[in-house]
Design a protein around this nucleic acid. Structure first.
Lengths: 210, 210
DNA sequence: GTCTATAATTGGATAGAC
DNA sequence: GTCTATCCAATTATAGAC
């Protein structure tokens, strides 16, 4: 409020409005996909008019891009393997597998996976962004851990990059695909069992005898 | 041509027209997805009018369903593991992995995967159909082979169902996901290498010494 | 059965008042 | 900056002639 205040009610601060639009767009896109989500619906969800949407985002595509970019950012936030102990690979990998699987199967991540895969042809750049922020990041973390474990002699791995991909694939297993296809979410016990089974098989292949 | 032939040029036989519409719809949906494909475009591609489309399929959704159902049918046609030799697991699994991977990464299968995943929310039943005809069928074939190999003592597997899922996951690896996201198709040599690596790891875990 | 022409609706985007 | 009201293009679906 300055001395030149006109007395007219100050409109909502721009960033707040933009935030609420982004949040509404996020909910709407994730629930309906790009094609089925209308700007009308997003405006309604945001409690704003369509015209206001277009003040902040010049097109539906741009708004979608902003949503996906932000969600990609959040994907693997703080998903590190740096604090895992190469001395106890079974415990470390089990811990990692459980965290990874629960992240992967969380409703938000499944929804964003579906959207990006469904819109790859129209938005190839967004898929690339998501890949780098998500799967690739996880693989790099895993590979670092395997390099340390191989050096410590607790895992018998020659190609750490390959092993990281294979471990991630084992953990994803059928569950990820199955859930992408909308075929029933497993309960918590099933997730823990899946993680345990993946680790067991991986250790049968690459574990070292004590 | 009967004695009551009016002399008016006989219209194209219904099945032929329906076929050409289905084929055009298949190409259009697979190329653009459900939302971006218009009935106009499909009619043009089929060399028919929109009105004719609606004679055979009462809505866009129904036409889409017909396309997906047919493609699902073709998915794993003749994808059997019955002729694999449990006596030579390495050769058998390598053969299987190569076939499976090439099927999975073929442009048509990738396209249909993208569409179904992208439209799961709107068409959950189609996802179920595809799953049964595709991934589930492959898993069943694999499990049968593993049961035989376990009985023959050439593989050390307790849970054949679990092992089938794990083997399929290892073979898919990162390639499947990566290609779903549109990140470059691997060449033939890379595919063979991926198959070989998957088999090698699987055999490290479940192979038996001779 | 097949077409042309069109109805009816939806949805992205904008003009203009405040 | 925000809203209401509206424009306009695209799209699903159908009516009616042949």
């Amino acid at each position: 409020m300055s001395a030149t205040d006109t007395g007219i009610a100050a409109p909502t601060a721009p960033t707040v409005k933009a935030e609420s639009i982004l949040a509404a767009a996020r909910r709407t896109f994730l629930a309906s996909g790009f094609g089925a989500a209308s700007m009308d619906a997003i405006a309604r969800e945001a409690g704003a008019s369509k015209a206001t949407l277009y003040v902040y985002f010049s097109s539906k595509e741009e708004l979608f891009g902003a949503v996906i970019a932000r969600e990609s950012e959040r994907y693997a936030q703080g998903f590190s393997a740096g604090d895992l102990d190469p001395g106890d690979v079974e415990a470390s990998l089990t811990f990692f597998a459980n965290r990874f699987l629960r992240l992967l199967l969380s409703p938000d991540i499944i929804a964003i996976n579906r959207i990006i895969i469904g819109e790859v042809v129209r938005f190839p750049a967004l898929a690339e962004v998501f890949w780098q922020a998500g799967p690739e990041r996880v693989r790099v973390q895993l590979e670092g851990f395997f390099r340390r474990a191989a050096a410590a002699g607790t895992l018998d791995i020659a190609d750490t990059r390959l092993a990281a991909g294979q471990f991630a694939s084992l953990v994803r297993g059928e569950l990820h695909q199955q859930y992408l296809f909308g075929l029933g979410k497993p309960d918590d016990k099933a997730l823990s069992a899946a993680a345990k089974n993946a680790v067991a098989t991986f250790l049968r292949a690459f574990g070292t005898r004590k």
